[in-house]
Design a protein around this nucleic acid. Structure first.
Lengths: 226, 226
DNA sequence: TTGACAACATACCCGGTAGTATGTACCCAT
DNA sequence: ATGGGTACATACTACCGGGTATGTTGTCAA
């Protein structure tokens, strides 16, 4: 590897690190106060910096929000996508998906709150067409994610283990439960893994049971990869 | 009734009507754009009026938001409270509660969206202590509402028809499902009662099944009072 | 008829914030 | 050493929107 390439690599790294720090700070600000109530100065202040630093990497506040949203969705798609692609028992698969989803919710909380804000479109309406375009892309990702669950649910319905009428409604109900902890969960000082595990266990059960056609106790020990 | 009292009554009525119109306009604005992105001018413009009219009835934007929120919660508490107080089969009772709740969600959509905004506390953090106080009151109402469901759920657990570990988690899961349509439902021109009924039926089933210990088909014809 | 009050509209102030223009220190290849 | 680019900080502008102060019009009671 040439010195030039090496240098280029290092610079690229710096940009990524610079972006990543801003991204994280922005995610926490947006989580705490929402998009509109967060100023660029707030984000910069959290890094002990000034606006200049933020605007060096992002052209606008909306761009920053989009990137935070996108990062959150990438985390989710990256973990659930591979699982949804697997073959096998739909119950076991949905179980893994639920647990992984909940794991992500609890461990990248700030990003996930921003994702929810985007879904509720608290910024839609008064935005430029350019921003509209990007927002539509984010919504596509969101829909794609929901389709992963829908697909698995329909598989299970065909094999008789799941029961529901409208697949869209079913996936929305499942995700409503799985997303719920994002609203009220907050990181504590004495972050107990046990506490998080209890949330994952119980909400996975709620989510699966609401579409299950039988009360066979869902195999709760079948998944340990989270 | 004296002429004076009559006049007083009429004036009181006018105040109520005046407030009600502003309240409705505000609910729709908040629903569409969120608290921060909504200006008082927006609310006034929706009525074909100006700021003066709004500030004649409300002292601040926060006050207006609180009133919208409170109105939404009163609708909910007023319908679910009496049902929760009834004795009898917890399954049938929860069924009625779910259906009534969903009915309210679909029929006072704008107010319910504002309630959700309050819950997510997009305004918390950068508010005055005075506002904090009022916000706390709203949260109390919200918690009281959740307790209606929790109480019924625990009743059912004692009689063996419901099954869950943590009552708080269970009520949150149930309400997560019941509140979900608020996010994506939108009034159409050809508002079909059938469409709304399908939502009520299916989401009630999801909500109840996620805490039910048996798969006895939930008596779907047992409730017709909605 | 008149005065008092309600129900607004108009005009204005002012703080906060998105975005920009510019400066500066530092690194690095040549 | 030097010129150029990166990674910021500083200083400034422009505007939006919450809140207020002040008019204007109609209504009703005395």
């Amino acid at each position: 590897m040439s010195a030039l390439a090496d240098s280029a690599m290092r610079q690229l790294d710096d940009i990524d690190v610079g972006k990543a720090l801003i991204l994280e700070a922005a995610a926490e600000c947006f989580m705490e106060a929402g998009f509109n109530a967060t100023s660029i100065d707030d984000v910069a202040a959290r890094l002990g910096a000034t606006k200049g630093r933020v605007y060096h990497y992002y052209r606008s506040k909306a761009d920053l929000f989009f990137d935070v949203h996108r990062t959150g969705m990438q985390i989710n798609l990256g973990t659930i996508g591979p699982i949804a692609g697997q073959h096998g028992d739909p119950v076991a698969k949905l179980n893994r998906m639920c647990r992984s989803h909940l794991y992500n919710m609890l461990h990248s909380l700030s990003f996930q709150r921003v994702v929810m804000q985007g879904v509720e479109m608290h910024m839609a309406g008064r935005t430029t067409p350019k921003e509209r375009e990007k927002l539509a892309l984010l919504m596509d990702e969101r829909e794609q994610y929901e389709l992963f669950f829908q697909k698995t649910l329909v598989e299970g319905r065909q094999s008789g283990v799941f029961r529901f009428e409208n697949p869209s409604f079913a996936s929305k109900a499942v995700l409503a439960i799985l997303n719920n902890p994002v609203i009220w969960y907050q990181k504590r000082k004495g972050e107990s893994d046990a506490g998080r595990l209890a949330i994952i266990d119980q909400f996975t059960r709620f989510a699966m049971q609401c579409v299950c056609s039988s009360t066979d106790p869902i195999n709760e020990t079948g998944v340990s990869d989270v």
